[in-house]
């Protein structure tokens, strides 16, 4: 998606009899497509962690730019919803902005926001917001590679068999080999987890920092992979346990006491931000959270 596409869309806000807007179906997708996506979502919720195939459709953005997550969002969203879209913690990246604009344009009655607590649906690429999430919020993850077993098995037929039979020895042995070679598990983004004690799942490339937040979470997490045509889910209050050993336990990123150069937080996921002088500083990855902290501090 780019500016050109958006600007080509009619802005006259004229509505057809069926309640569509701008000549497009509500939320861009036609009703049958949304229905089929919702059906996949229901199945995904019913079998936590299981990758449900779905007929991923064409969108006015390229595959690989969040089309899976967007189809989930567009199928769920309706009047009264408030949408937040983030890209690695940023509400202002081009991709996040474009997705928000597409929804604003085609789904009347939906508001968009940067404030986490206001959102009913949060579509994200590679992060979970720092702010606590609630039972009436839905996380929609954009997933590039939904198959956690791909690293150990190339063939789709074989990975599907492995999931069906809960035959997870090989992914475990990959972690074992990691420990043998490096003295620790080096896997970071997209850390494999066991969902509901059954399916091994990749939580999309979120940092390890965010993984524990999926465990017994109050909110529903939906994962959409547009290019790979898979949808999977973690329903609220479901066990999400990272693959790890009793003597090499799962650990989140350690920032070694560093804090955000802007808001001063030392309890958030930090990223390195290059400075004009060639140096770099640590800063909150979740910009809206950082902003709120700074505002809070400014007021007090």
């Amino acid at each position: 998606m780019n500016e050109a596409v958006v600007s080509e869309m009619p802005h006259d806000a004229s509505r057809t009899q069926s309640g569509t807007h701008s000549g497009y179906s509500y939320a861009f997708l036609d009703e049958l497509t949304k229905k089929s996506v919702r059906r996949a979502i229901l199945k995904a919720v019913a079998v936590p962690g299981y990758q449900v195939p779905f007929g991923s459709t064409e969108l006015p953005i390229a595959r690989g730019w969040g089309t899976g997550g967007l189809q989930v969002t567009l199928s769920l969203i309706g009047p009264g919803d408030v949408l937040k879209v983030i890209d690695q913690g940023s509400d202002d990246s081009v991709n996040a902005v474009n997705i928000r604009q597409l929804v604003e344009l085609t789904a009347p009655g939906v508001d968009t926001t940067a404030a986490t607590e206001e959102a009913t649906i949060i579509q994200t690429r590679h992060r979970i917001p720092e702010a606590p999430l609630h039972a009436d919020q839905i996380m929609v993850f954009q997933v590039p590679l939904p198959e956690p077993l791909r690293v150990v098995e190339r063939r789709e037929s074989e990975t599907r068999r492995m999931h069906a039979e809960a035959d997870y020895g090989r992914i475990w042995v990959a972690l074992y080999e990691d420990v043998v070679q490096h003295g620790r598990i080096t896997r970071s983004a997209g850390y494999p987890v066991v969902v509901n004690g059954r399916h091994v799942m990749t939580p999309s490339p979120i940092p390890k920092w965010d993984v524990p937040r999926l465990h017994q979470a109050p909110f529903l997490s939906l994962f959409g992979a547009g290019r790979e045509k898979r949808i999977y889910a973690v329903p609220p209050l479901t066990d999400v346990v990272p693959l790890a050993f009793d003597d090499y336990p799962f650990a989140i990123e350690d920032f070694d006491g560093a804090h955000c150069a802007r808001c001063g937080s030392d309890d958030t996921f930090l990223v390195e931000v290059p400075q004009p002088d060639g140096s770099s500083v640590m800063s909150c990855s979740d910009e809206s959270w950082c902003e709120a902290r700074r505002t809070e501090r400014g007021q007090s």
């Binding site: 035959d167 997870y168 020895g169 090989r170 475990w172 042995v173 074992y176 420990v179 043998v180 050993f245 009793d246 003597d247 090499y248």
Partner: peptide, 11 residues
């Protein structure tokens, strides 16, 4: 791999 498949969890 066989031990891991049989749910051994200590390296």
């Amino acid at each position: 791999e066989r031990l891991l498949a049989a749910e051994w969890r200590r390296v």
